[in-house]
Computed example of a mutant assay.
Amino acid sequence: MTITQLQYVLAVAEHKNFTLAAEKCFVTQPTLSMQIQKIEDELNVLIFDRSKKPIQLTDIGQKIVNQAKNIVNEADRIKDIVEQQKGYIGGEFKLGIIPTVMPTLLPMFLNNFIKKYPKVKLIIEELNTDEIITRLKNGHLDAAIAATPLLEEKIKEVVLYYEPFVAYIPEGHASFGKTEIAVADLNVDEILLLQDGHCFRDGILNLCRTAGKSDANAFRIESGSFETLIKLADEGLGTTLLPYLHTLELKEKDRAKLRHFAEPKPAREVSLIFPKTELKIHIIDALRQTITGVVRGAIAFQNVEIISPLAKNKA
């Protein structure tokens, strides 16, 4: 058997379709089918049950796929070893970033990174946390930037920074006159949140649960963007919470409506996450160093309390 044959097996196992797997592997469907047939003949087993739609792994096929993932990863590691020995930092690198981090963090480090490492071809996608985890496990991402902890067994987390939550309080609100606020000042009936699926939303829900305000049904889920939430708050429809880096881009009239929390400030932990196989670790390290170098000057908060994006029973 060959590494290429194993890659074909993994593609079919993922897509559950020979034609789609062939497209993803950039070969014809007959070529892919023939190579998988060869490996099945060599092992004298059926890896796939072709009678089912979609195609399913047999019991022995599942075990073969689990081992094939290890073999393909180790083969890729050999390339990594050679590149690191040569001091070469380059090649394609797929990075996922969650939506509430990408607009503020990416402009801060991208230009510095591509100037310092011009041989790295960064392919960046905005993805939610669940999509990121799935793609990391399937080998379709090399690394990602997300709110942590995630407590995924096969994923390593390296903290980049801690980003405080900041309240946006419109004029006329009862808390507008305060210089800083406490979590107890939050009113669960009026907080405007991002749509379901955003981990920043989950962090706010958990923040209020820590204050004993656990009526999640009281939250109004209004929008997919912070800009819309701010406009809704200005219309008198409630208050909202923003990540600190996002507040740096607000106009002066809107910055006057920001209220920081009393210490320890509730904050989210933002990390660079990647498979524990640590493939392309030299690029991952270069990315980490670049990001921490630029963020260190933007976030100087020390006394913070990390609010997990996970529900209490999962943390």
Rank of each mutant, 00 (worst) to 15 (best):
A174Y: 10
L192K: 09
H260D: 02
A174D: 14
A216V: 14
S214P: 10
G224C: 02
L248V: 05
S214R: 07
D215C: 04
A167N: 03
R209D: 11
I169L: 03
F200R: 03
P170A: 08
A256H: 12
G197Q: 12
F219P: 07
G203K: 06
L207S: 01
D234C: 01
H260G: 02
S214M: 07
L245V: 01
S214T: 14
N217R: 12
K213A: 07
F176E: 11
I169D: 04
E269I: 05
E227P: 10
G203E: 12
F261T: 00
T239C: 02
F219Y: 15
G212V: 00
H246Q: 09
E180A: 13
L242Y: 11
K251F: 08
F226A: 05
R201G: 06
A262S: 01
K213F: 04
I204V: 15
E252S: 14
A174V: 13
D254N: 06
F219G: 04
V183P: 03
H198S: 13
C199R: 00
F219E: 05
D234E: 13
L229Y: 06
L258A: 08
I181V: 14
G224A: 12
T179K: 12
R268Q: 09
I221E: 13
F176P: 02
E263H: 07
R201E: 10
L250K: 15
A233E: 15
L207V: 03
R209L: 05
G212F: 02
R255L: 11
C199A: 10
K231P: 06
H198R: 11
G236R: 05
A267F: 02
K265Q: 08
P243W: 00
T239R: 00
G212M: 02
D196G: 09
P266L: 03
L250Y: 13
Y244W: 10
G203L: 07
I204D: 10
E269H: 04
E180N: 15
E171K: 13
G236L: 11
K253W: 01
E249M: 10
L205N: 08
V183H: 01
L192G: 11
C208E: 03
E252P: 01
D202M: 06
E249H: 13
H173R: 09
Q195W: 11
A262L: 01
A262R: 00
G197F: 12
E235Y: 11
V188D: 00
